[in-house]
Simulated assay, not measured.
Amino acid sequence: MTVLEAHSAAQRRVGGWYQRTTGRWCYVFLLPALVLTAMFTFYPMVMSWVYSTMDWSGFNNDMTFVGLGNYRELLGDGMFWSALGRSMIFVLVGTPLRVGLALVVAVILNSQVMRLSVAFRTLFFLPVMASASIIGVVMTFVLSPNNGPANSVLVGTGLADSPVGFLSDPKIAIWTALLVHTWKNFGITMIYWLAALQTVPAEYYEAARIDGAGWAKLARHITMPILLPFALIIIVLTAKENLHAFAIIQAMTRGGPYFSTQVTEIFIYRTAFAADEAGGVPRLGYASAAGCFFGTVTLLFALVQLWGARRVAETRRELRRARGDVA
């Protein structure tokens, strides 16, 4: 063996040892994150399903196995289904409202002739950065019938004869919460649309304009077909987010008045930790069953989101091929 061959063999041995050592150190550095994830994510998920089969208050050691008894009770619980129906209001009404308005605003702000578009994007996105709890508390003052700015304007301009109970009237409290929740998270949906709009090749518009196409034909034949896969995933993301309105509702109404804003998450919280507010006894096992059921509903949205993400990836590959970026 020559000196050169010996040197090459030594380098290979050192290189192999270095790669093996580096791989092991990666697992060492990942270990703290894996432990924390197991403790605060996987373990609670598994135990939620375990507790859902128990009759347990959560405050003592008296735990009785009831199997699917909690789920059978849940199916006949009118309070739970009413809460789930209110959550569906946020999905079925709030999602198209937010997605549609955000698309219109995104199209306007995406226009190259729109001045100060960056400033307007920032203004629309600012509420997203604020805490939902803080916004909820602030809105209770803004919408208060006692010298709240909103009612002062309505009464002062003659639009209302008396202060409106935005959060105290059971008929309109849920719609007030929905509008506040939509306003607070409007910016993130707008950003989704802006990102989707910027994937539309500019040369498509230029070629269509040369052929005499107006804005309506551009939208119908170019923009909308390309945005359709993105629209699916944006709708699913918005619907999933609308299912989780706990923080803002808890801060504004705590599920009242008369349970009119009690969505599923508020129902679960009250059943598990604040049942005394409704004159009952905490039932962590029953609340876990409600949470597992609600989590399954959310999982269905996540599966649709996964399918939509694949469609978006396929559409982007097709666009690259059409532009000659991919052979």
Rank of each mutant, 00 (worst) to 15 (best):
D276T: 11
D55Q: 15
A272I: 03
T264N: 03
M79Q: 15
G255E: 02
L103I: 10
V180W: 00
T189N: 11
I135P: 02
H181S: 14
V312R: 02
A196E: 02
T21F: 12
L74T: 03
P170Q: 10
A251F: 01
P32T: 05
G69H: 01
L30V: 04
W175G: 02
F120W: 13
W81H: 10
G291R: 00
S168R: 10
Y286Q: 04
F42L: 15
A177P: 01
L143F: 06
G255W: 01
G214L: 12
Q250T: 12
P225G: 11
L92E: 13
G158K: 08
F59M: 08
V28K: 05
Y71E: 12
F42W: 15
G100W: 09
L303H: 09
A173H: 04
K171M: 08
V281M: 15
D325A: 03
L154E: 01
F267I: 04
M190W: 01
A160G: 04
M139E: 04
M88R: 14
G285S: 04
A275V: 03
A290C: 13
A275M: 09
D77F: 05
Q19R: 12
V3H: 14
F42K: 09
L167F: 03
L159E: 12
Q198V: 13
G279Y: 05
L218E: 15
A177I: 09
N110Y: 14
D55P: 06
L178I: 03
V137Y: 04
G214T: 13
L218D: 10
R12E: 15
A208M: 00
T21E: 10
F186I: 00
V91Y: 03
L197A: 05
I268W: 00
P170D: 10
L232H: 07
V312P: 01
V142D: 00
S260V: 09
K217G: 15
G280Q: 11
I222D: 00
R209G: 06
E5M: 12
L4W: 09
P149R: 07
I191Y: 04
S168A: 13
R270M: 07
L243H: 02
M224Q: 07
W25H: 11
H7M: 15
F293T: 11
A309M: 10
P145Y: 10
N151V: 02
L284T: 02
W56H: 02
A287D: 00
S8N: 05
R115K: 08
N242P: 07
A245I: 12
W183P: 01
F29R: 07
R316Y: 13
Y205C: 03
N110C: 14
I108S: 08
G76E: 06
A38T: 15
E203L: 06
D276S: 08
W49T: 10
T176A: 03
V236K: 00
V164C: 12
R321Q: 13
P32K: 10
S117Q: 04
R24H: 14
S152Y: 14
Q262R: 05
T296M: 15
A177R: 01
W25E: 06
Y192I: 02
Y51L: 07
V180A: 02
D169V: 11
T199C: 15
F80V: 04
A274T: 02
R220P: 05
G148I: 02
L237T: 13
M88P: 09
S48A: 11
N146E: 14
